[in-house]
Design a protein around this nucleic acid. Structure first.
Lengths: 332, 332
DNA sequence: ATGATCACTGTAAACCTTTTCATCGAGCGA
DNA sequence: TCGCTCGATGAAAAGGTTTACAGTGATCAT
C-alpha cells in the first residue's frame, strides 16, 4: 500500500495512462471491460500496466463501485475441527474469484453473532454464515440487510448450502442393521441446533422404516466433553450401537468407554457424524457419516457471488458418504 | 455498505455536518481527534452522528490515510489443530483494536507463501506471519516490504513472538528422567522447520546436561501420518521413551503402537509438543509441552500495532508448560 | 454529398473522507 | 488601542478509480 521502508510509491492509473499514451478511462476499460477497447490499444495498455506492476487501488475502486471485493465468513468455533475445512474451501474459492476473506469466530455465542455480522457487513460485499443456533427470525432479518449465504442451515428465502442428511442417515442405519443391530441409541446435540433437529428428524424417519428401536438420549454440548459426560448413561441402556450427534461427541464416548473397559466395537458400536480429521486418528478409528466441508465452503462462495451479481437465490444440497472404519462391528 | 434490499442509503459525513450545523472538517475532527474541538461542539456532533448511525466509510478513509484498518494473518495449514487457536487470538485482539483480519492458508506450500503475502499486503496495514519453513532471506525481504510480525519464528531485525523452547524441553526431560528414562528417542519434524531446529538444539543441550542418551530419528511430516510412518522404527530401537516433534506426530505414534499391541506408557512413554485439543481426547491422554497459542496470536497483533504506529521492533518470548497426562510413566 | 450510425476514446464529475491552509474572533501584553 | 497569539472552525484540495457523457473520425445507406 504505502512505501514501508524503501521509497517506492505505488504506481497509479495515471502513470499507466501517461506511459501508454491514453487516458485513464481507457486504462480502466482495457483492464476491466476489455471488449470495448480496440485490440491494439488494449494490448498496449495491458503490457504497460504489467510492466509497471500496476494494481488498482482497492480503496479507490471500492469508493466508487460500492463494492469492497471482500467476503465475510462467520463460524461458531474455529477450534471445532469441523470448521477449518469449511474455511479452507471458502478461502480457496474466494481467492480464485479475487476476493479476500474476513474471518470471524463467535466463540459459540449466538448472541454475539448478529452484532459481529453487522460489524463485518460494512466491510464486505456479502457473508458466508455458519450459524447453527441463531434464531430463525433474527437470521432472516440479517439476511435482508446483508447479502448472505447460509452454510449447514436452511431457511426459506435465503440461499443455503446443506448436505443430504436423510441419505446419510439411511446409509448409517443400513450399515448398522446389516451388522445385526436392532437397538440403537442417538446422543443428541444442542436442542436449538438446526443440524441436530435435522438429524433427529431423518433418524426417526429411517428408524421407523427399517424397524429398529431408537433410544434418544438427552442433549449434550457438541464437543468432546459432551460425549464423555453421557457415556455412562449410554452404557446403562440396552443398546448395541450408538450414533453420536457428531464426531467430537463420538470421540468423547470412545474415550470414556475405553476408560470403563468397554470394548469397541465388540461390546458396542459407535458411529459419528461429520468425518473430522481426528476420526481416523483414534483407535479404533471412527465409523462416521462424512459431510462435505471444503466443498460446502466453495459452494457457499459460489452462491454468494451469484447472489451478488445477479440476485439469484439458490440452494445447494451436497451428498454425504458413510465412512466405515473400526468403531462399528457385528452386534453382540 | 450499499442498500441491499431496502432503499436505505448509508449516511455520510456531509449529512452529519448539515444536521449538526458544522462543516465536515469539524465532524471528522470531533470523531477522530476530539481534543481539538470545543467540548460543546464536540458533544453535539457526536450525538448527531450517533443518532444518525453514522460510520465513516472505510474505503474513503483508506484512500486518504493510506491505512486500511485491516490486518493479514497467514498460516501454513488451518487443518493443523495448532493454528486455529492462534487465529482466535489474533482475531480477538484485532477486533478489540477495531481491525479486521484477512486470513490466508498456504496449504503447507512455502513457495506459495511469498506470493500470498504480497497479494495480501496491498489490502492490509501489516501481516502476522506463521511461516515455519520459508527461507530466511526471503522472509527478510518480505518483512522489508510489508510491516510483519513473525509468530513462532525468530529472525534478527524482525519483530517476533516465540516461546521458551529450551525451558519446555528442560521440563520434559526432567519429567522423563524422574521417571527413570535414560534412553530417549526424538522424532524430528521437517528439516527446514525453524521450530524443529530449535527443538533439536534445546533437546541436545538439555540431554547433554542431564546425561540421557538421545536417539534422533529421521525427519517426518509434522502430521499424524508422519508419526504412523515412523512408529515401527521407534520400536526397533532400545528406548523407553519417545519425544515427538509435535502432538500430531505423537498421536500417529500412539495409533500405530496401539495397533502393534505396544502398551503406552507401560512399554513405552510418549511425549508430544504443542498441546493441541486432541492431546487430551485420546486414550491414554498425551503428555505434552504446552505452547501458548491464543496468547501468541494476541501478542502478534500487539507487536504489529506497535510496529505500525511507532516503528518499534520488539520481540516477545512466552512461557511453556509441561502437561503431564497418561502417556508417560515409569521406565520399564 | 449528406446525414446517420458506429466503434473508439477522452473529459470531467463523482465517490467520501481527511488534512492543509486560511479565516475569524477573543484574549492579552504593551 | 494596536498588534499578536491562540483556539476554533470552515473552505477546499487531495487521494485513485470508475463512469456518464461528449467528442472524434470512419463507414454506410440514401
Amino acid at each position: 500500500m504505502t512505501d514501508h521502508k524503501l521509497g517506492h510509491v505505488a504506481v497509479t492509473i495515471k502513470e499507466v495512462a501517461r506511459v501508454a499514451g491514453v487516458s485513464t478511462a481507457t486504462v480502466t476499460r482495457a483492464l476491466s471491460n476489455p471488449e470495448v477497447v480496440r485490440p491494439t490499444t488494449r494490448e498496449r495498455v495491458r503490457e504497460v500496466a504489467a510492466s509497471l506492476g500496476y494494481h488498482p487501488n482497492r480503496a479507490a475502486r471500492g469508493l466508487i463501485t460500492g463494492r469492497t471485493g471482500n467476503l465475510g465468513l462467520l463460524v461458531p468455533d474455529l477450534a471445532n475441527p469441523f470448521f477449518p475445512s469449511i474455511v479452507k474451501g471458502v478461502q480457496g474459492r474466494a481467492h480464485e474469484a479475487d476476493h479476500a476473506v474476513f474471518l470471524a469466530d463467535t466463540d459459540e455465542d449466538p448472541a454475539a453473532e448478529a452484532g459481529l455480522v453487522r460489524k463485518l457487513a460494512k466491510q464486505v460485499d456479502g457473508i458466508v454464515l455458519c450459524s447453527p443456533r441463531m434464531a430463525e427470525p433474527e437470521l432472516r432479518t440479517l439476511a435482508a440487510e446483508v447479502p448472505t449465504v447460509l452454510v449447514y442451515r436452511r431457511i426459506a428465502g435465503v440461499p443455503s448450502v446443506t448436505a443430504e442428511f436423510l441419505d446419510g442417515m439411511r446409509q448409517a442405519i443400513s450399515h448398522l442393521v446389516a451388522l445385526g443391530h436392532q437397538r440403537i441409541a442417538y446422543v443428541a446435540g444442542p436442542r436449538r441446533s438446526w443440524a441436530n433437529r435435522e438429524r433427529v428428524r431423518s433418524l426417526r424417519a429411517v428408524a421407523r422404516k427399517s424397524g429398529v428401536e431408537l433410544c434418544e438420549m438427552g442433549n449434550v454440548a457438541p464437543q468432546f466433553h459432551g460425549g464423555v459426560s453421557i457415556a455412562d448413561r449410554v452404557l446403562a441402556t440396552e443398546v448395541t450401537a450408538v450414533i453420536a450427534y457428531n464426531d467430537l461427541v463420538a470421540l468423547g464416548l470412545l474415550h470414556r468407554f475405553a476408560a470403563r473397559g468397554v470394548a469397541v466395537p465388540d461390546d458396542l458400536s459407535v458411529l459419528g457424524f461429520d468425518d473430522i480429521p481426528l476420526a481416523e486418528m483414534v483407535h479404533p478409528a471412527l465409523t462416521t457419516v462424512a459431510l462435505p466441508k471444503e466443498e460446502a465452503g466453495q459452494a457457499g462462495v459460489d452462491l454468494l457471488l451469484r447472489l451478488l451479481d445477479s440476485h439469484q437465490e439458490v440452494r445447494r444440497e451436497l451428498p454425504t458418504h458413510l465412512m466405515v472404519r473400526g468403531s462399528t462391528g457385528p452386534a453382540r
